[in-house]
């Protein structure tokens, strides 16, 4: 069977793209990525973000033009001269994540709390976005 490859260079690009999905040896470029869950209820959009090791003061939440942005910095602990890393799997650095909120929300009433390393944000829906029960006559 003959396999024709029209653009052999594209294979390299594909390989590169594959590699991009893996943590590489270039640790300097590795950034913390925190998990988020987004849920819609009848009344609100509820966002939970895992931010372990980050204090409340180190998190910034903004809402602008339907985009909710969460940014935080997890500072790398500085070791003293007589201390050494035996293992370092936790990623440190700055982190930002934006979530597009596709429904109209009441931006005056957005509520955020932070507990046990979870950032919890409630964005109440605007009146026009709430589900309405239609009365059948």
């Amino acid at each position: 069977m003959v396999v024709r490859i029209h653009n052999p260079i594209s294979l390299f690009n594909e390989f590169e793209n594959l590699l991009a999905g893996f943590p590489t040896a270039k640790t300097a470029e590795r950034k913390p990525q925190f998990k988020a869950s987004i849920k819609e209820t009848n009344e609100a959009i509820v966002v939970n973000v895992e931010l372990p090791g980050i204090k409340k003061e180190e998190v910034k939440v903004t809402f602008d033009n339907d985009v909710l942005t969460i940014s935080a910095e997890r500072k790398r602990p500085e070791l003293k001269e007589n201390e050494q890393w035996l293992r370092n799997e936790i990623l440190y650095g700055t982190f930002e994540r934006s979530i597009n909120i596709s429904l109209p929300v009441n931006s005056e009433k957005i509520f955020a709390s932070h507990e046990n390393g979870i950032l919890h944000i409630v964005l109440p829906k605007a009146e026009e976005a709430k589900a309405k029960q239609i009365v059948i006559r």
């Binding site: 602990p77 070791l79 003293k80 201390e83 050494q84 890393w85 035996l86 293992r87 799997e89 936790i90």
Partner: peptide
């Protein structure tokens, strides 16, 4: 869970 281990004296 991800882990960090630091050895001190």
């Amino acid at each position: 869970p991800a882990v960090d281990i630091v050895e001190t004296p």
